[in-house]
Amino acid sequence: MTKLVRVIDMERCMGCRSCIAACHVENHLTPGAPWNVMIEREVGKYPYSRTVFSTMNCMHCEEPACMKACDAIGVKAIHKSELGVVTIDYDKCIGCGYCFAVCPYGVPQETQAENIDNLFPGQDKTPYEAIPAAERHPTHRKKGKTYQKCTFCAHKIDKAVADGKVDRIGKDPEYTPSCDVVCPVSARHFGDLDDPNSEVVKIIGEKKAARLKEEFGTHPQVYYVLEGGDY
């Protein structure tokens, strides 16, 4: 069994935002609905202060509250795959916002209808926008007034499954989420939690990586090597 997890090392993160830029490009993000954000805060008191950086994206919980809420109202637009990836079906989503309301991390973002057609009004479409919807991965066929969020780059994970290369997820850039590939200081890692030899398992064990807001019992699949702050 494969359980995909991400480990973010806040001791190494320097706040360059490469992961955020990569996500924007890879997943055709629309204004006001990012899948990955950087939260920074100062800790300590001058002159002994410093900034702590942490990137937030979907935690792809094992017990996703968003999916439970969506199922409870009968919409059933949120799905969790066997590998642990939580995705939203834009065709089923009714934009009620319950997923956002119950998510302990406030992850799902509403797609603003006016931002779908043209990223730069009055100008030509960018090459990414010009890709016909039918040729895009379902997670990139965004619709106005629906909710969207990080998918662990589901198009890459799906490709790994199709190619029979699930064991290469987290190792080959082709099958690894872009944000984790581009990090210049190796602060992000992605891989299989059920593989005792995977890098993520070693880091979680050695650096005592923790999950945020565990009191909600959603069993997040993103681990943080924490550095300061109140979580």
Binding site: K68, G106, E214, E215, F216, G217
Partner: peptide, 24 residues
């Protein structure tokens, strides 16, 4: 405050359950 939701929406609470007991 999201923590408020836990009072009723955690497993065993009076409302529809969205959250399981703590994993800690």
């Amino acid at each position: 405050e999201k923590d408020v939701c836990l009072g009723c929406h955690q497993e065993g609470g009076i409302a529809t359950s969205f959250y399981t007991p703590s994993t800690t």
